[in-house]
């Protein structure tokens, strides 16, 4: 085991896959010479050459579309969207093309691409460098969607995504890049897509979340333990397909659930998680399903007090967890 940062875990996964499989290549804006605006692809061009860490024109639909074309003839492209906010010009390629290629051709053609997109706020990015766009793609059959919270999951899920036979959207939280470190195995491993992970065990309340807010929940749980409240924390890791079994099992354990995410509340992933719980477990609940999510405003503003107001943090999460525990 080695302790590395979240961003280094992403970089290491790409580096190892480029090394292992000559069909893997990375493409996107500034991913080559500069190594990415966040440094996620640093060193890849130097090690693997310009073609395998390909600087593309500033055109997201082409980045996705070219990757799709390449994937259909046997490549394993990793397409980087510089910010997930700028993924929207590629939405048609992702939803109309990548998601439907296997289905529309009756399994004759496949589209094994990975689209990496830095998402989330808390970095003074303003409206267009802070969004969580997962709900736009969530509910599109044919796509897989992952959103890791730790270096272990970041590396393992990226390796799994690159080796997957279907298109995978890989949302990496910008705020986690350098603020989150953790242990990663030295040997090859993957984190299977479609499997949630229990990040902390407890018997009083269940928290279901993903991405940056996993850390707020874990920090809050440590403090609440001092008050005698033990939280059970589930990190979804994969948003599509959701790990239904893990969701139900974790809620059964405590009878109380808080769903937490940074993306705005209406139509978010939490709404579906909540529906699954209501459909299957309504009579086993000891409290109404609770959700703590981003506000339903178009996106988070840049001004520090506004961003702080929008973003979840340990204290807001702790308050919601305590309220649920005391219900």
């Amino acid at each position: 085991m080695t302790t590395i940062s979240y961003i280094d875990a992403i970089n290491a996964a790409m580096q190892e896959e480029l090394q292992r499989d000559e069909n893997v290549f990375v493409l996107g804006e500034d991913v080559g010479v500069k190594g990415g605006v966040f440094g996620t692809t640093k060193g890849l061009m130097e090690q693997f050459g310009e073609e395998r860490a390909l600087d593309t024109p500033l055109a997201e639909s082409a980045i996705a579309g070219v990757a799709i074309g390449a994937a259909m003839v046997g490549m394993r492209p990793i397409a980087e969207m510089q910010y997930s906010d700028f993924m929207l010009p590629a939405t048609n390629q992702i939803i109309s093309e990548a998601a439907k290629i296997r289905y529309r051709s009756n399994n004759d053609w496949q589209c094994p691409i990975v689209i990496r997109a830095p998402f989330g706020g808390g970095i003074f990015g303003g409206l267009y460098h802070s969004q969580c766009p997962e709900s736009i793609f969530f509910g599109t059959p044919g796509l897989k969607i992952v959103a890791p919270s730790t270096p272990y999951d970041a590396k393992g899920l990226l390796l799994a995504a690159i080796r997957d036979e279907d298109p995978v959207l890989y949302f990496e939280h910008k705020k986690c890049y350098r603020s989150v470190t953790g242990e990663v195995p030295d040997e090859d491993y993957i984190v299977p897509i479609g499997k949630a992970d229990v990040k902390r065990e407890g018997d009083d309340i269940t928290v279901i979340t993903y991405g940056l807010t996993v850390h707020f929940a874990l920090q809050a749980a440590e403090e609440l333990a001092k008050e005698g409240i033990e939280a059970h924390i589930v990190d979804l890791r994969t948003l599509q397909p959701l790990d239904k079994e893990a969701i139900l099992e974790s809620v059964r354990r405590t009878g109380k659930v808080l769903i937490l995410h940074e993306d705005n509340k209406t139509g978010g992933v939490g709404a579906e998680v909540s529906a699954i719980i209501s459909e299957e477990l309504l009579f086993e609940l000891d409290a109404p399903i609770a959700r703590l999510c981003g506000y339903d405003v178009p996106a988070m503003p840049i001004s520090p007090p506004l961003e702080k107001f929008y973003m979840l943090n340990k204290d807001k999460v702790m308050e919601a967890m305590r309220k649920l525990a005391l219900f």
């Binding site: 003839v73 109309s96 004759d108």
Partner: peptide, 28 residues
């Protein structure tokens, strides 16, 4: 149209989405 046997790449209805795909295949 679409037929892997004939190298006819599966197409869709939204027009010109195949143009970037063609660039991708040519890139390979």
């Amino acid at each position: 149209f679409g037929s892997k046997r004939l190298n006819i790449v599966t197409g869709s209805s939204p027009v010109t989405t195949q143009v970037p795909h063609a660039a991708g295949i040519a890139l390979v």
